[in-house]
Simulated assay, not measured.
Amino acid sequence: MQKIPATVITGFLGAGKTTMIRNLLSNAGGKKIALIINEFGDLGVDGDVLKGCGAEACTEDDIIELNNGCICCTVADDFIPTMEKLLARDVKPDHIVIETSGLALPQPLVAAFNWPGIKTAVTVDGVVTVVDSAAVAAGRFADDHDALDAQRKEDEGLDHESPIEELFEDQLTAADLIVLNKTDLLDAAAIQSVRDAVNAATSRKPKMIEARNGEIPASVLLGLGVGTESDIENRKSHHELEHEGAPHDHDHDEFESFIVELGALKDAGAFVEALKPVIDRHDILRLKGFADVAGKPMRLVIQAVGSRIETYFDRPWAPGEARATRLVVIGLHDEMDDVAIAAEIESLG
C-alpha cells in the first residue's frame, strides 16, 4: 500500500503559516487534504480562519484541531490517536498537512511518524519552516549574546540561549524547505541579511525560497518526497542535545498566553492604532483573534505580530452565533503582566 504523504508546517509565532495554508487549500489541484492544526493558547483562531476559507480541497470535517497544548508535548496523548482515527476513515486523504503551534519543536512530532501503525501508513513528505523575514531583519531572533553570557556567569542556572532564539534555530534545523515569508516588507539588502541570519542559525542547509503573503504553489510545498522521519536523528533540537540519553520533560514555561474579551468595537481602525503602542510597551509577541464591529454584519480577524497588525473581514456572523471580541495574547512569561495588559486593551474598546 502506498503511504499517505504528510507535510509538517512549522515556524515561529506570526510567521504566516495559516495564511500559507489558506493559499495552499485554494490551489490544491484536486488533492483531498486533511488538516491537523495545533495552537498555543485556548482560543482556536487559526482553525476557525481555515474553516471559513471554503476550500473544496479541505472541508470542515477534514480540519482537526488539537488545543491541549503544543503538539510536541502531547504526541502520545493527542497526535497519535488523531492520526489513528484519520487513517481509519473509509475515504483516506491524498495528503495530510499539519500546522504546528508557533512554539512547537518539530522534532518530537516528526519522530512520532515512526510509531507502529503510523509508519506503515504515512510518511513525512517534508518539513516546511516558515520564517517571518521582517521579524528576523528587525533582530527579533538575534539576542545580545554578551549580555546573556554575563547573566550566565552570575547565575549558573542560566545555561540556555534565549527561548526565542533557541526555538527559532530548532525549527530551522528540522526543515526540508525554508520559506522566507513577508519579503515584500524588505529591500534586497535586508532580504540578504535575513538569508545570512538563517544560514547562521543552522548547520543544515535546506533549500530556501522567498514568498509574499504566503503565496507558494502547492507543487512546491507538496511532493518533496523526503521521508523526514528516517532522518530525524540528524535534526536534534537544543533540548534533545542537552538531555542526550537522559529522561526529561519538555515544556513551554517561558511563554504564556491569556484571552481578553471585549464587547463590540465602535471604531475598528482607531482600536487597531491604539493597540500598537500597547503591544510595543509590553513586548507582546503575538496577538490574534476575532472582533465584533458595531454595525458590521461580518466578523473581523485581527492578526498582530509585534506591532504589525493585519485586519480583514472573513465571514458573516452566523445566525444565533454570539457576537464578541476575543483576542489571545502571547508573550514571554517573565515579561507579561496579564492584568495590566488586559486592562489596557479593555480600555481601548
Rank of each mutant, 00 (worst) to 15 (best):
S257M: 09
H248M: 05
V339G: 12
E99S: 13
G289M: 10
G41Y: 11
D249P: 06
S219C: 04
V136S: 12
L158C: 04
A291T: 04
D42P: 10
G295C: 03
E254H: 15
R212V: 14
S307E: 03
A137N: 07
V91I: 11
I80K: 01
A55V: 03
M83G: 00
R235V: 10
L66G: 01
D231F: 13
S230G: 06
L287Y: 05
P206N: 08
E39F: 10
V124G: 08
L24C: 01
D334Q: 15
M83E: 00
I345K: 12
I209N: 10
G69W: 06
T100E: 02
T18E: 13
F255P: 15
E256N: 10
T311K: 00
G29S: 01
D292K: 11
G54Q: 02
F113E: 06
L50R: 03
G41H: 08
T19Q: 01
V130A: 04
A189P: 12
A324W: 05
L13V: 13
H243F: 10
I209C: 11
S237H: 12
E169K: 15
D292A: 13
G11C: 09
G223L: 09
D159K: 04
E273M: 01
D337N: 15
P297S: 07
I341T: 03
A175I: 03
E56A: 08
D253E: 15
I279V: 11
A246M: 11
V122S: 07
E99K: 15
D132A: 11
E321N: 09
F113L: 12
A190S: 15
G263C: 04
A294S: 09
I284H: 05
I302W: 01
G306H: 09
D61C: 03
G214D: 04
D292T: 09
